[in-house]
């Protein structure tokens, strides 16, 4: 019951997630297809970042010209003295020469990515003067420039205000439909906003069970999977259904 429109980029089967000798989840299995927008949720310390790092170490079955899976960590420092364009250029570490210069086609790709994410008017601004949301978008742009088939984002909306959170979530949804159809996996605590944009959910349950659900599964399956991360799942479903009814009104 998965999204059949895109090719499978990653097949995870029976993965075990653990940290420093402690096992969190066994039998983690899911697929990542082209253009998937996947939300990863779980309580603090449940192993979201560990799972993302594990995926970052995998190899995607991607087409020509791409550069493997790219992970964008949370809380990248906004170092003063670099323009937004410099920042994207620096992130193309493997493509640039010793002096950090890029080939003309890569420079053009930066221009393209920035204009797609509506960042072109900020390209010359010092990154320390950008809002956290704008900077997060710049980090996403850097993944696009590297033609990543799968983009992993560790809590991209943490520490953002409501407006920036919505903007970044919107960007995530948007890039899944861009040429090359990259898949996006993002971890977040903003469940309602995440559910609104994602087509698949990976949930690290409070009961020690890993759940994967997608939009075209049974109705409410994604919500149920998300509820699994709470010690009291029913309360979340009740809350969500009340909100849903309010939205219908």
């Amino acid at each position: 019951m998965e999204n059949i429109t895109g090719n499978t980029l990653l097949e995870v089967r029976g993965m075990t997630i653990g940290h420093e000798g402690k096992i969190f989840y066994r039998g983690v299995s899911f697929d990542v297809r082209e253009g998937d927008c996947i939300m990863l949720c779980g309580a603090n310390g449940s192993g979201k970042t560990t799972l993302l790092r594990a995926i970052a170490g995998m190899k995607a079955r991607s087409g020509k010209g791409s550069n493997g899976i790219v992970m964008i960590p949370s809380r990248i420092p906004k170092v003063k003295g670099f323009t937004l364009r410099d920042f994207v250029r620096i992130s193309c570490y493997s493509q640039s020469d010793l002096g950090g210069r890029l080939a003309p086609e890569d420079e053009a790709a930066i221009g393209n990515a920035l204009s797609r994410l509506c960042l072109d008017n900020l390209a010359g601004r010092d990154i320390s003067t950008l809002s956290d949301g704008e900077f997060q978008k710049a980090a996403i742009a850097s993944a696009l420039v590297r033609r990543a088939p799968v983009i992993l984002l560790d809590e991209p909306t943490a520490f953002l205000d409501a407006e920036n959170r919505i903007a970044v979530m919107g960007t995530l949804k948007e890039i899944c439909g861009m040429p090359g159809r990259p898949a996006v996996i993002f971890s977040t605590h903003d469940l309602a906003e995440g559910l609104a944009v994602c087509g698949k959910v990976l949930a690290l349950g409070a009961d020690g069970i890993f759940r994967c659900a997608c939009e075209d599964g049974k109705p409410d399956e994604m919500q149920k999977a998300v509820a699994g991360i709470f010690k009291n799942p029913d309360a979340f479903i009740r809350q969500a259904s009340i909100q849903g009814e309010e939205n219908l009104k």
Partner: peptide, 13 residues
Amino acid sequence: DILLFGDEFAAAA
């Protein structure tokens, strides 16, 4: 340059 943005970001690049 890239190390200024953190080890994890540098490694990812």
